[in-house]
Simulated assay, not measured.
Amino acid sequence: MAAEMAPRTRFFRIATQLGYWLLLALLIVWHGIMPETDESALPRYLSLILWVLPMLFPLLGLVKGKPYTHAWFNFILMFYFLHGLTTVYTHPDERLWSILEIVLTTIAFVGATGFARNRGRELGLGLKKQKDAK
């Protein structure tokens, strides 16, 4: 049976879940429901595929609470973080959406990092140290 989850680890898990689900909802609303402001924008279905599909890859591992999935989920989050930073600067009419994207991505990133680290230690996972070769 898996080790009991410490309160600190549970806090990071809740932060990850909160950031993940709110970011996923934001992306669906922003790229799927809100009216297009740019005439050169992608078709709505293609925009949804490009923005929402990557968020679905870690879904199962995040729901099950797997530390390894939480760790590599951060690589996906960096794509959204950089998008938010770029959009804040380049699209003033979408500034609120991009600030929300940055905030939610940061919450998910901190939560996933903390959960992966703490839960990995609780379960005895981690990188093995190489013995000194003498």
Rank of each mutant, 00 (worst) to 15 (best):
A3C: 01
M5K: 05
A6R: 03
P7Y: 05
R8S: 15
R8L: 15
R10Y: 15
R10H: 13
R13K: 14
T16S: 03
L18V: 01
W21R: 10
L22W: 07
L23D: 01
L23Y: 01
L24T: 15
L26N: 06
I28S: 01
I28H: 01
V29N: 13
W30M: 13
H31S: 11
G32F: 08
I33W: 13
I33G: 08
I33A: 13
M34H: 08
E36C: 02
T37R: 12
E39C: 04
S40M: 11
A41V: 07
L42E: 09
L42Q: 06
P43W: 02
R44K: 11
L48Q: 00
I49S: 01
L53K: 04
P54V: 09
P54I: 08
M55Y: 08
L56E: 06
L56Q: 05
L56Y: 05
L59K: 08
L59M: 12
L59T: 13
G65V: 06
K66S: 06
P67R: 09
Y68G: 15
T69A: 02
N74L: 04
N74R: 06
F79Y: 03
H83Y: 02
G84S: 02
L85G: 15
T86R: 13
T87E: 04
T87Y: 02
Y89C: 02
P92T: 05
D93F: 06
R95V: 04
R95W: 02
L100S: 13
L100D: 11
E101K: 07
I102P: 02
L104F: 04
L104I: 01
F109K: 03
G111E: 13
G111S: 13
T113Y: 09
T113L: 11
R117S: 15
R117C: 15
R117G: 11
R117M: 15
N118P: 03
G124K: 00
G124L: 00
G124P: 01
L125P: 07
L125I: 11
L125W: 14
L127R: 14
K128A: 14
K129E: 12
Q130C: 10
A133I: 14
K134G: 08
